[in-house]
Each structure stands twice: as C-alpha cells, then as structure tokens.
Design a protein around this nucleic acid. Sequence first.
DNA 1: ATAGAATGTCACAAATATGAGACATTTCAC
DNA 2: GTGAAATGTCTCATATTTGTGACATTCTAT
Lengths: 184, 184
Amino acid sequence: MKDTEQSIIEAAILIFNEDLSAPLEKVADQAQVTRRTLHRYFKDRKELMDKCQKEIRRACAVAMFNAYNTTENPRERLEAMFYAGLDCGSKNTFLHKLHTLHDHKHQTADEACSKYDHTFELWKGNLQLLLTEGVINQGMTVDWIHNFFQSVVMVFINSQQKGTLGRAEARELAWFSFSKGIGI
Amino acid sequence: MKDTEQSIIEAAILIFNEDLSAPLEKVADQAQVTRRTLHRYFKDRKELMDKCQKEIRRACAVAMFNAYNTTENPRERLEAMFYAGLDCGSKNTFLHKLHTLHDHKHQTADEACSKYDHTFELWKGNLQLLLTEGVINQGMTVDWIHNFFQSVVMVFINSQQKGTLGRAEARELAWFSFSKGIGI
DNA sequence: ATAGAATGTCACAAATATGAGACATTTCAC
DNA sequence: GTGAAATGTCTCATATTTGTGACATTCTAT
C-alpha cells in the first residue's frame, strides 16, 4: 500500500505552490483521495501546511547536504548544489515563495524563518565564498543570486510541466542560464 | 479624487499574484477601501479578475510597443523591451503565471490565450530574430527565454519589495543576469 | 476466505467568503 | 457653505469551505 500521507503532502505542495488559498478539495483531488481521507491524516489546513514545510525543508536540506559533500571545490560545489536544487523542484520554490510574500516579515527570531535560513546555509555560504574569491561577478549579492537561483528552478519546472523540453536538455539550459547569469 | 477603480485593480494584481484565491477582503485592504466599495466597482470576483487581465495586457502591450519603437536594432530592442518588462513588474509576471498554471491548457482557440500571445508577439518575434541571427546562444528556445525573462522580472520585483537594493542597481543586475543568461 | 486496516460515501454543523440593501458619513466641486 | 457623489457602516441572505461522525466498501496480509 502506497504512503497516502506522503502523496497528500506532495499534492499539497504542488497545489499550494500555485494557489496558496486553494480549497483542500483541490489538494485531495490532486492526491487522488477523498477530502475525508485528507482530514484523517491532517487535522486542518494549518497542520497540512506545517507538514509540507517540514517535508520541504527535510528534502532540500538533505539534497543540498549531499551535493555539498560530493566535492571540496567551491566551483564544483556550486554546480552540484544547483542541480540538487533543480531536482527538489517545486519544493524548493514553494518554500522560497512563502518567505518572500510581500506581507511576510522575515526574521531570524521566527522559528520557521530560522529553519528556512538554515536549509540554505551551506548553499549561501558557498556562494559567499565564490563571491569573495571573485569567481562570481563582484556586483552580485548573495541574496540576488539566491533569488535568481530560485527563479531559474521555476523556469525549469515550468519547462518540464509543458513537456516541450527533455529533462537533460532543460537541466543544461538551466545551468547555462544560471551560471552565465551570475557571471561565471 | 483618485481613481478608486484603478487602485483596486492594482491591489488585486498584487494580491492575486501571490495568492490566486485570496479573499476579496485582502484586495480591499490592500487598496485601502472597504469590501463594500470594491463590490460597487466589480460585480464579482470573475469581473475583477477579467478587468485585471485586461489592464495588464493593456499596460504590457503599450510598454512593449513603445520600447520596440525606440530603435530599429534588434539587439537594442531586446534591451529596451527587457527594461519595459521590468517596469511592468507584477503585471507582467501575474499574466504569465495565469497562463502557466499546471491545469491551464494553453490554446490559441481560447480568447484570453490568444490575447496573451498577442501581447508578447513583438517581444517573441524579436527574440526569434536574434536567435536565427546567432546573437543569442543557439541552444536556447524562444519559450525558454520568455520564461527566463519572466523569472528575472520576479527577482527584480522581489528585490524592490525587500528594498535592500536600489532600483537602478537592481535594473543593472537584472539586465546582466538576463543577457548573460541567454548567452549574449 | 477472512479479519482488520484503509478508504469512500453521505450527512451535518460550524466557519468563512460573497454579494447586496439601507442608511450614515465623508469628500469634492462649485 | 451646499449639494451631489463617493465611501463607510451595519446588516443580512446565500454560497462555499471546513472539519467530523456514522457506516459501507475496498484493499491487504495471512
């Protein structure tokens, strides 16, 4: 028997990423499950959302950590972590979106924000290193690059959804646009 | 007396861009107006949404058209139109988002889709020209570039909302990331 | 084949969102 | 200042969303 809880979370990430206030029925449909079943696994919308964030952070942190450890070279690390980010897909962009809503005040005091920052600690640290070393165009800021990274992931996801571009092709294009776009 | 209808539309674009199913109360708040007033101008959510799309298409089409006509040089046109796109801000990205939702089937038969395509006709035509001329990296596709363009606009908007970067600075960064990212 | 777990179906109450009427208050042009 | 237009306040009916109980059905391991 497949893991219903997990598939609901995946569905929720997909739906909420596009429509934050979408009715839970949409999530249930996407997960091919009844709304009643959804409620058996999640007390309410808040709990579902929290579980989504937790899952996203877990998946992204693991992927980033593994990518980080494939090499010691900062330049190679950048590329490995970039691809890891692509593979996290909408998990990546959804989390980022939540923390860049116009009425969201990002603050380290908040637990969710602090966890978010921690998820991308290695990634941002490596970026900073490449910046000070001059590998990346000096006019850039870590924040700009991080946002830019997230946006390229979105372009990648998009191309995959439309299916006009093969996965390998799209990955290459994404890396090209990202690396050149930050001046490597 | 300021144009209430217009300011509600602007507010709606801002809110819906982040949360498609946000309650109308949020839109009213953003527009600093009562929900009752909002309903005096717009019969219902659908009418508001339609007016938003119309306004967006109008603004984007005008901006793109003007930028297009500032020069005859395709390379310069690209840059002018890129900045025009930046200036359209969330109008640009919201329209794009609506036409890339995972359950949205884009088809020229649909009136809204056809109008959307028309809004970016000049822009995409110019892109195609630069592609065949080899100014842009040959591995690129017009669709990828267009999506990439939209995503860079998002990064720009984001940086402006956070206010960590001046407008002029952010514009420069955006153009750098975009132009290099497509291989110019 | 059967027990037990998981899920679906139906029904329902509560909460929230929507749209509009009636009238008070504010704003603006003059 | 005055009157008309615009907006706000309060209220209400309706529609939609949400969360849950009761029970039927389906699936799964043995």
